[in-house]
């Protein structure tokens, strides 16, 4: 197994774990937010966890799109160089 394959495999595994973690965090976040503890800071922490989880899910969903977008923009920018000006 080459390094590239190993990294690809690792990426896939990490991605699965990340999705799971998102779910866990989202659930934990809602659980803390909805818990009958009348402390505002705890509620805020739960809210923060939910926000972070949603943000992570957003970036994860956007991941392939972002990378594709970069290569698309660059391939459009990477035109052949203009002819060299003739120096006297």
């Amino acid at each position: 197994m080459g390094v590239v394959e190993f990294i690809q495999q690792l990426t896939t595994q990490l991605m699965t774990i990340a999705w799971l973690l998102f779910l866990v965090t989202w659930i934990v976040g809602w659980a803390i937010r909805g818990s009958p503890i009348p402390i505002h800071r705890v509620k805020r922490a739960g809210q923060g966890l939910i926000e972070d989880a949603v943000l992570a899910a957003f970036w994860m969903a956007m991941g392939s799109t972002i990378f594709a977008l970069i290569s698309y923009i660059v391939s459009n920018v990477y035109q052949p160089m203009p002819p060299t000006p003739i120096t006297p």
Partner: peptide
């Protein structure tokens, strides 16, 4: 290719950390 895969890995790790249930 290796570098782009590494970049993707970094990206996923970043998301993983972002998704951790640690406030």
């Amino acid at each position: 290719l290796l570098a782009s895969n590494l970049a993707l890995l970094t990206y996923i790790i970043g998301i993983l950390i972002l998704a951790l249930p640690i406030p």
